[in-house]
Design a protein around this nucleic acid. Sequence first.
DNA 1: TTATAGATTGCCT
DNA 2: GGCAATCTATAAT
Length: 224
Amino acid sequence: MRLLNHKSKNTNQRSATPLALPRVKALPRAFYNRDPRVVARALLGKVLVRRVGRAQLAGRIVEVEAYLGAGDAAAHSAAGRTARNFVLFGPPGHAYVYFIYGNHYCLNVSCLPQSEAGCILIRALEPIAGLKQMARNRGMRIAASDGLPSSRRLLTTGPGRLCQALGITRARHNGVDVTARKSELWIADDGFRPRRIAATTRIGITKSPEQPLRYVIVGNPYVS
DNA sequence: TTATAGATTGCCT
DNA sequence: GGCAATCTATAAT
């Protein structure tokens, strides 16, 4: 398996360096079996891979938010287990996909052991492979190959956008094991390590907005 | 049973 | 900057 590298003029450190990925590893279950704040930082720079038959869509994770297992009023798990959030209470390393505002899907990855409901919201990706398909999925006429960062940003910057670009839906991907390379959705480590990470407050929440639980790769142009 | 807010986005002025 | 789109969960009738 090989991720096609998209030739791009790099506007940021090394985040778009060629991916020599003859055999990247999937992150193991133990990676996710930790405090969401630790997992969130560690996920920055990893590669989200969406397999569609033989084709692959992939993007580097550049922005995430941590939602804590207990005592986090902003988390979906705050009121306990429901038909929507049950995945969060299962084992770590599984996709939690929910539908929001009647229009958009958002992708999270569960962390902490069984019965503890922490998770990480994936908020932005730097597109790596399958950009044309992403543009098609997003209904963008231009194939995002015009080299303009401004238009490419619209592919995968924002939690709703990246789900649409990768064709992620609740019906198909909620509960998927992201530690398995055979999954339609999994997360790879290609050895890239962010140079600098910053923590800020989370976006769009009203309940406990003061905690710095949003993490970004400093300077990456695909951060929202 | 009905109302309202929400981990968002795109299009309008 | 305002607001519509319109599913899901929860609070209020």
